[in-house]
């Protein structure tokens, strides 16, 4: 019944989203002189061959506040900058510049933030980004995207390139499997990965989506029919999909690589609370602490309860 599992994915379909992004961006910049790549010495573009776009790749060094301001100046002058840094530096260190220089002016800057969630792994809490979705969705005009696999990354980068306002695109670090999704990713529209009549699992990002899909398989064994939604667009949120989940299934479990406060779970709960229906929302997210444990990404996900098992536990606890 599962439509999405790591096991079903052939190894050649496993790619790091940030490498997919890099390859798409290099093409975009080479083909269209509106696009400019602003780097903060991430190392992601070291081997990139820009061809005709070489003048439009600028490494501005390790200075993220300046990076965002420069991007705004370029965007106001008619260019479409793709800004590159790690998620936590984009969202926290440079937040005021993102808010005032980019969001306030509603400028078409694309902030591409790698190392989202716990994906920086053993680099530690200084490099984890468990706050970025909350902070970015607060900002007026901002579109917040979290592709869950390589193909979605490619299509979202291309779609984001054409949006009129600012975009925050959160990527991970390591390779993750491609999903076996029947419907293409469309910005602002939740991607159904599995239909289900009892409960709805709403996830964002590669590992949370995989965890939700795996949990749905597990729940099926218990006779619980779980729908799975890939909420790749955190803002603007697909309210309609959430309303459907809240009114047609008896409860929602959200899954994200983020602190519980302010992220996808909060966004979903806001919609459900305002709807006024009796639909419990349970959040699978990182607890209100700096990530427990040390170690690699997968280890940290398990240690911090971002797992299929945790999702299934929460789903089973939903009132019958």
């Amino acid at each position: 019944m599962s439509v999405v599992t790591a096991e079903r994915t052939a190894p050649e379909q496993t790619r790091a989203a940030r490498e997919v992004y890099r390859d798409v961006l290099v093409k975009l910049v080479a083909e269209d002189d509106r696009y400019v790549c602003l780097d903060s010495d991430t190392g992601l573009f070291t081997a990139a061959s820009w061809g005709g776009g070489a003048r439009r790749y600028l490494n501005l060094g390790i200075a993220e506040q300046n990076l965002m301001g420069v991007a705004a100046g370029l965007a106001r002058s008619g260019r479409i900058p793709f800004v590159n840094t790690m998620a936590t530096f984009a969202a926290t260190r440079a937040l005021e510049a993102v808010k005032l220089d980019i969001a306030y002016n509603d400028l078409p800057v694309r902030i591409v933030a790698t190392h989202g969630g716990l994906s920086a792994g053993h680099l530690g809490s200084t490099h984890h980004a468990l706050e970025d979705l909350a902070l970015m969705r607060l900002l007026p005009h901002m579109t917040v995207l979290v592709p869950a696999d390589g193909p979605a990354t490619e299509s979202m980068v291309r779609a984001a390139a054409e949006l009129p306002g600012p975009v925050y695109l959160r990527l991970g670090r390591g390779a993750t499997p491609d999903l076996d999704a029947r419907e293409p990713v469309r910005i602002g529209v939740a991607q159904p990965l599995r239909r289900g009549a009892d409960v709805t699992l709403i996830a964002t990002g590669p590992h949370p989506v995989l965890a939700a899909a795996e949990a749905a398989d597990e729940l099926a064994g218990d006779g619980i029919d779980a729908a799975v939604l890939n909420m790749h667009t955190v803002k603007p949120l697909d309210r309609e999909a959430i309303v459907t989940a809240a009114t047609r299934t008896r409860g929602i479990v959200t899954v994200e690589e983020h602190w519980a406060a302010g992220g996808l779970g909060s966004a979903v709960a806001e919609v459900v609370a305002e709807l006024g229906v009796a639909c419990p929302v349970r959040r699978v997210a990182v607890a209100d602490r700096f990530a427990a444990g040390t170690g690699g990404h997968r280890h940290l996900l398990a240690r911090n309860g971002i797992s299929a098992a945790a999702v299934a536990v929460q789903a089973r606890r939903l009132p019958a």
Partner: peptide, 17 residues
């Protein structure tokens, strides 16, 4: 502290143009 980063962006854009 926002004006000079913005100015660098405007100046880079002028150069690219």
């Amino acid at each position: 502290g926002h004006g000079l980063p913005l100015g660098v962006g405007f100046a880079l854009a002028a150069r690219l143009d």
